[in-house]
Design a binder for these strands. Structure first.
Lengths: 347, 347
DNA sequence: ACATTGGGCTGAAACGTTTCATGGCTGGAG
DNA sequence: CTCCAGCCATGAAACGTTTCAGCCCAATGT
């Protein structure tokens, strides 16, 4: 194995018979260099296989051409779809993306934010684990622009792109109420997640709006928004005495709903006949589920594109930039899992 | 908004009344510094909010503490599960991961490889779009270690971690043959993907092993391994005249299979009664599908961990490192989508 | 009392770029 | 023929670290 012959701009310069400054100009401002010289330098670059050293470049420039994306869960298609949108926009702008997965763990999130600080990224797109505003504002004071993703900024100090989770929760539960359900379980957690709380709040509003009590919407807390947590929640759901068991379940996201569906099916509970089910996000797999899942759709890819767009704006014209809160509207997609009207209660 | 006061190691040094070298030692080799001085420096770091500049550090050291991961499709749970395994191992080793999505596009792949070269990453874990060995060997000549992921290296010049795709294809089709199917469609593509070719080869072997011809295994080519491509393939499948339509379908991955399932269901074709279906990968959503999907399971997370482990070994002890090809065995998981034996042909 | 050791720290060079003040040429205007 | 502009190219400084030879001084050995 040949030893690495690190070829620098200096080698290119001497090989092409010009100065380092000229090579640099060819790379960064080609119009300043005469055609003949430029051709010679490019030939030398090609011949030597020169690749610019990003570290040196960044050190000199003082800033990188990189932004960070921190999500709660890579395994959740909701976030990978967002990531696609972000990647699109960032890539088109010629910048690089560092993709980080906090996995809902605050310690990991902190570690990644430190990493991004050290990398001197231009900006960070983040769905924080908890209310991280103070930490995020500190990032901003370091000159790192921050845009909140899938979370609304409460102070006007940050850009944010989100979806109206309260409304989404309301749509879901109102739909179930209209189908005749009166006792509906809410499955979601951890409570620390703002998305979960907001969706719950919307659900409660739908209940009280229909003259029902908040206690008619029992909350089954889950440790995470995953399929496994959903399966577990289904078991707890079925542990309740039959007569006051919920007839419908609203899950804080689709992964949970798919888990609940599996858990129920395994216990021979039919969906939607015995228990109706509504998820959230409308990931692609929702429509392909054992029982196609009613869900609250969010414009995932646009979410990512919009957030990245805001960040680019902030990075490129910091002067005339006004922070803004973009809020998309969710949309209920009704499918099999909640379609059949409830049979009249036997009790 | 306060202007960024960039605080460097020099500021820390003067604030703590020591030299820059000492601050550097506190950061990198704390045991060389006396307790008192170390405490003083740490206090200064804390007080000034100093964060090391990664670019400068990397420039000086000549190498980064970063590795790249290039996958074919972030939206495919198969790859996000691999990514989790990689992230685990890499993160534990105190290194950072740059996660790249080639999306099956060779141009994008090249762009990301250039990016990783510029970043002077220590190594790259990659599932290449096509046979990229020459490009990858050139990377290696640059001092960037390379490990192939989900692809077997044909020359012994690179480490690789893969699963026996030939065997997987054979298992799947043998299972269908045992259920009585004689005409089986293979859905997969693009042909350029080695995984697709190998799974097909295995499928053919199963056919010929049972005394059938390769022509009894028509190949429906798809432009990508996605749900949408699967839906499309289902339509083409049903376009064939009824009498020589396949009675079973083996898909090159689960996303395709889920798409085929959707397409068939939409046309009121029952699975498995009218057409049996087998997927590949056994992603979590396979078990939760409309009809739980028979699939060929791969140890996704272990794949990632193992590959990352090999890379770390290569990075840390390049001298005594021997390249190796790890090959895992796939496992057939039978579920509803192929369970029912074929009813005797009506023709 | 003197040489020796070694722990703890310093100071400056070096990493590979970009940037910018400087200067040499060329060609057209006066 | 001289002067001036403008175009190209040059060379060195600077970015924020790490590294390493070397210095100081207290402790140890004889």
């Amino acid at each position: 194995m040949r030893e690495t012959p690190v070829v620098s701009i200096r080698d290119v310069a001497s090989h092409a018979g010009v100065s380092m400054g000229t090579v640099s100009n060819v790379l960064n401002q080609p119009e300043l260099v005469s055609d003949a010289t430029r051709a010679r330098v490019l030939a030398a670059i090609d011949e030597l296989g020169f690749v610019p050293n990003h570290a040196a470049r960044q050190l000199r420039r003082g800033r990188s051409r990189t932004v960070g994306l921190v999500v709660l869960d890579v395994a959740n298609p909701f976030f990978t779809d967002i990531a696609k949108g972000v990647e699109d926009t960032i890539g088109t702008a010629g910048m690089a993306l560092i993709f980080c997965n906090s996995d809902g763990d605050r310690t990991r999130e902190d570690a990644y934010l430190d990493l991004l600080k050290e990398q001197r990224v231009q900006g960070v797109l983040i769905t924080p684990v908890d209310d991280a505003s103070s930490r995020l504002l500190r990032l901003r004071d370091r000159g790192i622009h921050v845009v909140l993703l899938d979370r609304r900024s409460r102070n006007a100090d940050l850009c944010s792109v989100s979806v109206d989770d309260r409304l989404g929760g309301e749509l879901a539960v109102r739909h179930l109420l209209e189908a005749g359900h009166r006792r509906i379980a809410f499955v979601g957690g951890p409570v620390g997640l703002e998305q979960v709380r907001d969706r719950h709040t919307g659900a409660v509003q739908a209940m009280t709006g229909a003259g029902l009590a908040e206690s008619d919407l029992p909350w089954l807390d889950t440790p995470a928004l995953t399929v496994a947590a959903g399966r577990d929640a289904a078991a707890r759901l079925l542990g309740a005495p039959r007569q006051n068991r919920a007839t419908a379940v609203f899950c804080a996201n689709d992964l949970l709903a798919l888990g609940v569906l599996q858990g129920l099916t395994q216990q021979r509970i039919r969906v939607p006949e015995d228990i109706a089910l509504v998820g959230y996000d409308d990931i692609d797999f929702a429509a392909a589920a054992a029982v196609p899942l009613t869900s609250v759709r969010q414009p995932r890819q646009r979410l990512g594109q919009t957030a990245a767009g805001l960040l680019l704006g902030e990075v490129n014209e910091p002067a005339e930039h006004r922070h803004q809160q973009v809020v998309f509207e969710p949309e209920l997609v009704v499918r099999e899992s909640s379609r059949r009207p409830l049979t009249p209660p036997t009790g």
